[in-house]
Amino acid sequence: MVPLFRFVRLPGALALLTLAACSGEQAAPANDSAAARPADGSIPLTADNIARLGLKFGAAVAATEAPIAVVPALIAPPPNARVAVAATFPGVVTRILVVEGEEVRRGQPLAIVSSRDVLSMGADLNRASARLGVAQSSASRLSQLEREGIIAGARADEARAVLGEARADVSEKSRILTMVNGSGASGTYMLTAPIAGRVTSAAIHAGSVVDGTTAPYMIDAAGQYEAQAQLPERLAGQVKPGMTVALGDDLRGTVTTVGSTIDPATRSVTLKARLPAGPGAMAGRATSLSIFGPAPTGAAMVPAAAVTTLPGGDVLFVRTRAGVVARPVKAGGKDGDHVLILSGVKPGEQVVVAGTSALKPLAMGE
């Protein structure tokens, strides 16, 4: 009689089994999975199998935070981080040095303004300096005469008082010109950036008229942003100041305030969060903000690539002494490229983080 054979696929090798070898006997059906799989359902793996399948392992990490919700938000500068650059004296803009959208450093020139007031102040400073020179000479001469007893001390005191007034006058006019970066000789002064940041508004052009009541430039401080969002009523009691928020995968900030009054139209409260500078942080941008709260006890974080789906639901391939076992898990929300695992795996356990697609057929007995 012709013997009947059947090939059964085992990890890394093929086993040849004799199913029937005698006349008139019918081959008994064989359960391949049972023959190849230990009783605990694990998949035996050797070092050679692991290398051939391209498997990589990583430890599940204890989770400290868990995603609560994702809400729409608007990025804005904090109230104390926006500075208006005012035109100190009326005049005409002669030159623009910085345009809207540019990054500036503190003290950087923004524009040059020609002003009649600055020209007049320059002339006043020259006259005050001349009077100061005369007052210094007079005070020195009268002080000498006082020491020699030629004149009364009152005359010398009067001269010294005039000298003090002249010095104060020169000092004040010099201080004002220095403060506005003005040049009395040319009659111009310079608008400069009071802080480092980004120019968010530049309502100015060459030839435009400015005065002391206008603010030609608005500058937002570098590295400081505020996210403003509407938090649904159901989350109003869960989210508290100090919790973490995330913009994208890398940029993280902190909840600063949560409103205490529910808007009857939107059934939401206002949430504000502080954000550092980074990708996606731009004043005026509408975006989505992820909110995180404390993670449940025993929860773990694993790379998103480690979680795969079998007919029964989500699983992780957890390493055992003999190989791996497909462990059903309950997944929570995502945090960037990681997934929160609420149950099914313990922090510290080794899981497959690359090559799960090669294990799925073996887990399903194919």
Rank of each mutant, 00 (worst) to 15 (best):
A76H: 11
A86F: 15
I96F: 05
V92N: 04
E103A: 15
A76D: 13
R105P: 06
S115N: 08
T94W: 10
D48Y: 13
E65I: 09
A66Q: 05
E65W: 09
A51M: 03
V118P: 00
T64I: 08
V83N: 08
D48A: 10
G91S: 10
V104N: 13
R82Q: 10
V118H: 00
R82C: 03
R52Y: 07
V71F: 01
V98P: 07
R95P: 01
L110K: 07
K56M: 14
P77C: 00
I96R: 03
P77D: 03
L97T: 07
P79N: 12
V85M: 08
Q108S: 04
G54V: 00
I68R: 04
V113M: 09
N49G: 01
I68Q: 05
G54P: 01
V71I: 13
G58W: 06
S120W: 00
A69L: 14
E103V: 15
E65F: 11
P79Y: 11
I96C: 03
R82F: 03
G91D: 07
G101V: 01
G101W: 00
A84L: 03
A59H: 14
D48V: 08
M121I: 10
V83M: 13
P72I: 14
Q108A: 06
V99W: 05
L119N: 10
V118I: 00
L97N: 07
A66K: 01
V113Y: 12
Q108I: 02
P72W: 11
A62D: 00
V83T: 15
A60Y: 04
A84W: 13
P78S: 09
P79E: 14
V118D: 00
G58V: 09
F89A: 04
F89K: 01
A62N: 01
A69S: 13
S114C: 01
L53W: 04
L53C: 05
V85N: 05
V61R: 14
V71S: 05
A84C: 04
V70I: 11
S114D: 11
V113D: 12
V93C: 11
V99C: 02
G101Q: 00
R95L: 03
P79H: 12
V99K: 04
V70A: 08
E102V: 12
E102C: 10
V98R: 03
E65D: 14
